[in-house]
Amino acid sequence: MAETIASSEIGFSRRWPGRRPSLHLALLRQRAGAWLFLLPALVFFIGYQVYPIIRVIWISFTDYQFLSTKPAHWIWFANYAQALRDPLMWESLWRAALFTIMFLPGAIALPLLLAVLVDRVTNARLATLYRLVLLIPAAIPSTLVFVLWKWMYNFQTGPINHLLVNNLGLFTFRNAPEWLGGTPLTLPSIAIMEVWWGLGYHTIFFLAGLAAIPKDLPEAARIDGANEWQVFWHIIRPRLAPIMMILVVLRFGTAMAVIDEYLIFGGFNRQSPTYTWTMFMYDEAFREGLWRQGFAAAIGMIGAIAMMIVMLMLLRMFRPRD
């Protein structure tokens, strides 16, 4: 920090030797001041993001155990080798991918449909009302979304099973579906909840993109006899591609790294479909044995690297071709 300011001072006086001292001083103070302004953000960003990541990489090469009093040893790639030999590592990565596959299509297609529909609402008041309702789920903090849906999916008293058993009569309480708790239905249940949560926010995202498309373009196409599907496919879709790309990549990232939902809905049963690489890491780092945080860090890094590789591939796939 001090060095940066110091070196910029030297550079400054060499470059402008003939300036008036007062202005020179003002410019100099501005340069130093810039880092002073950045300091609070940097302290937090480095202290709680950059340094922790570096530390996690570092301990992933050691046999560090949190609850052990013995000093840790540098063991190179032994943690990585052990994790990659463990079928659970692959299984847990596959589970995270499975959830992403269940979540992403709905999280993109439904908001897109809704956005195209809402975009064509002509009544200004209705259009504003729709947008207001759309943003309500986005204002609900994450844990409260999970709590709400934990109740919705509740086996005995949840409204979903109540509807299926009492109102529609499709099931009895003997064979009603168990939505949560590590059953095969847990991942799709969480995916539905996530689609609900993102529905409004993603729609608003697409609406922003639709607003940028000149209105006479689809109109002209319709006059020329194009049907709604052709208008969507040839005029709207290509213009929404950049927004779709950002959404796909960002939501791929969040879906692969989900953990809170699994902690609340799934539990630590290693056979559970919710036991993904994030849960594997958490389990090893904070629950099992002497908290093998070195090994857990390696699991976390493998998961993160696997994610980053797919994200780069997605970015390449969606790259504009011109």
Binding site: A285, Q293, A304
Partner: peptide
């Protein structure tokens, strides 16, 4: 700095850094 901030949006920092944040 801006580039690093942008990169951190794509990396699962929250999950991966958890172990080190606990230690801090």
């Amino acid at each position: 700095l801006v580039a690093i901030l942008l990169m951190s949006l794509y990396f699962p920092v929250r999950v991966v850094s958890l172990i080190a944040v606990y230690q801090i």
